[in-house]
């Protein structure tokens, strides 16, 4: 059984322009398979549909057509079963800013059925594993650097032992050192846990370093999904960046329209 099985996925949003309403496609017939334990990176510009894909897999968005299954569970028909095995880290380390890392992690873990006795033991262990200093564990999140907040976001995801980890631009906006630390942790996680990873990014180097296969998403269409050398061969490119340019006609820095402007 595949960890993730997406077949012909369609999602449109309604966009208002004055009195007119138009439908904009965020995902058009996306199909992909991710094997258990595999790490797949999806490259795409802002607005290419990456976040929409992550949000469908997270059960936060209902799709219009196609089917999406996570470890055999349909995301629309059986969302509770999907939620038990999925967690995510997104570009914004979203927390209650006045609460401490420990408080944010404690209540989040309860939502996954972890009792206080369990979290009292596990939270310090996991914070230590992601390189978060214990002395800051009771400080409000708003007093922490962006890099530290992102480490707590990683800890929050790991605390629930997800078998599918969705990483939506987890290192965007981090300083180089924090970025390397987060990437190193993701790599270590794959070697120690039975975790399947979908990494959405517009960092070519990150995709190449972390993923087994790389997909190119453009305008809601998955143009390619393969190992990096095969992508380079297919587009007769020396680098992944050149392959992306050849596939889409754009660089990753170009923005498409906001995919979810409703």
């Amino acid at each position: 059984m595949s960890a993730v099985e997406v077949v012909g996925l369609h999602k449109q949003f309604v966009r208002r322009q004055g009195r007119r309403r138009t439908r904009v496609s965020a995902l058009e017939g996306v199909s992909l398979d991710i094997a258990r334990g595999e790490c797949v990176a999806i490259l795409g510009q802002n607005g290419s549909g990456k976040s929409t894909l992550v949000r469908v897999l997270s059960t936060l968005l209902l799709h219009d057509g196609g089917s999406v299954r996570v470890f055999g569970h349909d995301v629309a028909r059986d969302p509770r079963a999907v939620r038990r095995v999925v967690n995510r880290v997104s570009v914004e380390a979203a927390f209650f800013k006045r609460l401490s890392a420990t408080e944010n992690l404690a209540y989040a873990a309860r939502f996954y059925g972890q009792a206080p006795g369990e979290t009292r033991r596990r939270i310090p262990e996991i914070l230590d594993a992601v390189g978060f200093p214990a002395r800051r564990a009771r400080a409000p999140m708003e007093d922490l650097s962006r890099g530290m907040q992102q480490k707590v976001a990683l800890a929050r995801a790991l605390l629930t032992s997800p078998t599918l980890l969705l990483l939506d631009e987890p290192t965007t906006g981090l300083d180089p050192r924090s970025k390397l630390e987060v990437q190193e942790f993701i790599r270590a996680l794959r070697s120690t846990h039975d975790t399947t990873t979908l990494l959405c990014t517009h960092d070519m180097a990150e995709a190449e370093a972390l993923a087994d296969r790389v997909g190119i998403l453009d305008g809601g269409r998955l143009l390619a999904l393969d190992v990096t050398p095969a992508l380079r061969r297919r587009y007769e490119a020396a680098t992944l960046e050149e392959a992306f340019l050849a596939a889409t006609g754009r660089t990753l820095d170009d923005d498409e329209d906001d995919e979810e402007a409703a």
Binding site: E103, Y107, R110, F111, G113, A115
Partner: peptide, 23 residues
């Protein structure tokens, strides 16, 4: 059932933290 009881406790716990932090 135990999992949902703990989750319910989590909702109450989170709001208690918020009241404490915004004292």
């Amino acid at each position: 059932v135990r999992g949902q009881a703990i989750a319910l406790m989590g909702v109450v716990e989170r709001n208690a933290y918020l009241v404490k932090r915004y004292g």
